[in-house]
Design a protein around this nucleic acid. Structure first.
Length: 484
DNA sequence: TTTTGAGTTGTTCGA
DNA sequence: GTCGAACAACTCAAA
């Protein structure tokens, strides 16, 4: 894997783009540029290979715009992005035949289905006399390189993060290539519009477009703004959903428009002015993403299988009506409903509210965490194959280093504590806009306050009483404590 | 091999 | 209103 493969300087090199839709800090693309060979950048929409989990609706919307941005960016470097769909192996073989490419480069992926695809691709190409080379991808460390002293993967976050950060500074990110040598012959590709990644009937993407600017350049603008205006005070403000107190970099990370190397490098080298406490807190969030990816690498079915098998017999309830009310933000608990509606409208939910909303589905409604994970997978622009299931399992208590069973978020207290003026609730639950700050989070108080809103007509009566739900959850979770 | 200390984000109750 | 304890045991990671 080291050194430059011995190839014909005038035969093209294929560069595969997958979830690394960027030109900067892109090892494969930089190597292609450096090789002096004609470059054929390719994006393959692969939902056909074995076990590939198709992107949800929100991610498809983002992908469309991100590919548009990437295509333009590559165009300015002198090359042309080719779009193809199908099984990765077959598509690449076809492209090699069409172009005469004798070298294929890509950045590594870390989930097992993708690893299997890439491993087979490498074997197949090498057998056909085509050289391949892969580069480190979107993680600070290859998952197989970070192990406990006994050689297993970390299952507890704190020692994991200690090990992660004790390895010294993350490498400096690569800058974008200045130019790419074009491949002159015509290579046919799909038209992005034909992939129908954007919703049409109905087009629900208006709120997403108002909220987000997908693409590499926008990601870096976002990082700059975060460092300049938001990082100072992050440790506290990140919990207040009415404020812009978080990085909002998650969708850019999920699509590989920005890398953790670029983020950590900026954190340690910039001349912004933020207290060490805030910087540390944010570095830990980056490390949590890394932790989730290492977990996924070692637990391929993280989105379907309990990490802790004591949960395998858990008495989940089937309740289509309650699930629907949760999904549509009609539970009758304003803080939860605001979060679910923010998700539906903007493709994103504030982290603090994600925990409260997830806890509500799992512990108040006793609905299987997989239902919630699937909903988030479909609706989040930052839906991530590792973060999403790892976080759901964390809330459920079945995950690695998970929340204890008796930690049941009280949606009323969470609202009062983290949205004390009710500004967040009012933004997404306009029915309650006239309810005052003191009562807006508690359904019982709203009913007694004399506010104009009529519960049961304008806004739903709570789907379940908090106290009763808490009691029921504690009893249900007793089942996970039985030892065989 | 055994031991030891520790473990993201909370809530409730009673003093 | 504030504060500490209880809510359980278990498993992990490292010495």
């Amino acid at each position: 894997m080291s050194g430059t493969p011995d190839t014909d300087p005038d035969k093209p090199v294929l560069v595969l783009f997958r979830h690394d839709l960027r030109v900067a800090d892109n090892g494969a693309l930089s190597a292609a540029a450096k090789s002096g060979k004609p470059v054929v950048p390719v994006f393959i929409l692969d939902e056909a290979s074995d076990k590939m989990r198709p992107a949800g609706g929100a991610r498809r919307w983002w992908l469309h715009h991100s590919l548009t941005a990437l295509s333009e960016r590559i165009g300015t470097l002198g090359a042309r992005l080719v779009l193809r769909s199908g099984k990765t192996g077959a598509v690449v073989r076809a492209l090699v035949e069409e172009t005469g490419a004798d070298l294929v480069l890509w950045n590594r992926r870390y989930d097992q289905p993708s690893i299997a695809v890439d491993r087979a691709l490498k074997a197949d190409l090498n057998e056909a006399g085509v050289a391949t080379r892969s580069f480190s991808g979107h993680l600070l460390h290859e998952p197989w390189e970070l192990q406990t002293s006994t050689g297993s993967f970390y299952k507890v976050y704190t020692p994991f993060s200690r090990a992660l950060f004790s390895r010294g500074e993350a490498r400096a990110p690569l800058s974008a290539p200045k130019s790419l040598r074009p491949f002159e012959a015509m290579v046919t590709g799909a038209a992005l519009e034909d992939w129908a990644l954007l919703p049409t009937k109905p087009d629900w993407s208006g709120g997403l477009a108002q909220t987000w600017a997908p693409g590499e350049t926008a990601g870096h603008d976002r990082l700059a703004r975060f460092l300049d205006d938001i990082l100072a005070g992050y440790a506290n403000d990140r919990d207040m959903p009415a404020r812009e107190g978080t990085s909002r970099l998650s969708p850019y990370l999920a699509h590989g428009e920005i890398t953790p190397f670029q983020i950590l490098h900026a954190l340690s080298s910039s001349d912004f002015d933020a207290p060490a406490r805030d910087v540390e807190k944010f570095r830990n969030e980056v490390a949590w993403r890394e932790f989730s990816w290492h977990l996924l690498h070692h637990n391929p079915d993280l989105h379907t299988v309990n990490f802790n098998d004591r949960f395998d017999g858990f008495p989940w309830r089937e309740d289509a009506d309650a699930l629907k009310r949760w999904q549509t933000g009609q539970t009758g608990y304003p803080f939860v409903d605001a979060g679910m509606r923010q998700l539906w409208q903007t493709g994103w939910m504030h982290n603090r509210v994600r925990m409260a909303a997830a806890s509500f589905l799992i512990k108040h409604l006793l609905i299987d965490w997989r239902e919630g994970e699937a909903w988030f997978w479909d609706t989040l622009v930052d839906a991530d194959p590792a973060n999403n299931p790892a976080s759901w399992q964390w809330v459920a208590g079945s995950g690695a280093d998970a929340a204890p069973y008796f930690r049941i978020f009280n949606p009323i207290l969470q609202g009062r504590k983290f949205d004390p003026t009710g500004a967040y609730v009012r933004r997404f639950v306009p029915e309650l806009s006239d309810v005052d700050d003191k009562t807006i989070h508690a359904p019982d108080d709203i009913a007694k306050s004399g506010a104009a809103v009529k519960l049961g007509t304008d806004y739903p009566v709570p789907v379940i009483d908090h106290g009763a739900a808490r009691k029921r959850a504690l009893e249900a979770f007793e089942t996970t404590k039985e030892t065989e």
